[in-house]
Design a protein around this nucleic acid. Structure first.
Lengths: 186, 186
DNA sequence: CCTACCGATCGGTAGG
DNA sequence: CCTACCGATCGGTAGG
């Protein structure tokens, strides 16, 4: 006899994040998602109410992780340089520990309806403002542009970094900070 | 009487690039594409043979633009620093002048079948190798990582830069080069 | 380039 | 969580 799979709502949301990250929202069907969980498509609707709601939940989880990380980093006592280091280390941790939610947050937010999309854009801007603020404290000439450049490096990690490689997490943080502070002349 | 729209194959490919860039490959239906051209879905098939072929064509156009740009930059005489500047200026030109093909190249290549995807990955690695080579000539400590960081900044332009803003193209190039060479301490 | 289709798949529901 | 569906939309074809 075959056993029926029984899944929690959290299983559904987490697996949705995985598939949205890998194949994109429009590239993932509800039947794909159900199959990944060992269910039939219709069974998903006892856990969630719509595919769109699932995307909202995953993307907002990503947004929340980044904001929590930034809030903690800004609360670090000491110099602004130390807070910048905490911001970068926190960002790296969020990307590497919650890759699916981060990828969905970064790449699929554009699919959301107007209301949710603008909420996500606002969250992103608030997060970026944390970087601008610390960079301002460090008397950087153009904190806005510096924040964009640093976050470009950080957000791109999702596209190339593999934890199985030779570059360890702490080294990665140091390399990014070194590059941001001094460029390639080190 | 209403006039029949008559489109060229190139119109179809260019418009496909626009929609793939904006909504993603899976978020664009052939009827969406046709409507954007003032046609009915079935009319597209006198120009192209499949939706997948359309994606291949747009992505390979993006790959080709970047490679041509790098080849020209590497042919620049003078110092390695000058060649790096040519690489960065060329990349910025490609992104700003061919935004749709670039966005599709960067964000939708993963949708391609195995054969085409690995071809695109190889093209990307060849392009990145141009950066590694020039950075090596400049005696950078870790040319591989420096190339990744610089390209992270360059590829992210697609996500935030608006030509209507106050930052001009040449200033953008200078800012990126300054950041890459010296970091935020300038 | 349009008319008229095709089978397959989509997100989702009713009811058990 | 499954069975049995639903109408809508998908990529694509035949023929003019």
């Amino acid at each position: 006899m075959t056993t029926r799979a029984v899944r929690s709502r959290d299983d559904v949301v987490r697996t949705a994040g995985k598939l949205f990250a890998e194949r994109g929202y429009h590239g993932t069907s509800m039947r794909d998602l159900a199959a990944e969980l060992g269910l039939l498509g219709s069974s998903l609707y006892s856990h969630i109410s719509s595919k769109e709601d699932l995307l909202v939940e995953v993307v907002e989880k990503g947004a929340h992780l980044f904001q929590s990380s930034a809030d903690a980093a800004l609360a670090t006592s000491g110099t602004a340089a130390k807070r910048l280091k905490a911001l970068v280390a926190g960002h790296v941790d969020v990307v590497l520990d919650h890759l699916d939610e981060v990828r969905t947050f970064l790449n699929e937010a554009g699919v959301l309806d107007e209301v949710h999309r603008s909420r996500v854009l606002a969250a992103r801007d608030r997060y970026e403002a944390s970087y601008r603020e610390v960079l301002s404290e460090m008397k950087v000439a153009d904190p806005k542009l510096a924040a964009i450049f640093l976050l470009s490096i950080l957000n791109a990690l999702e596209r190339w970094y593999r934890p199985t490689g030779s570059l360890q997490r702490q080294d990665l943080v140091d390399e990014i900070l070194g590059f941001a502070l001094n460029g390639i002349r080190r």
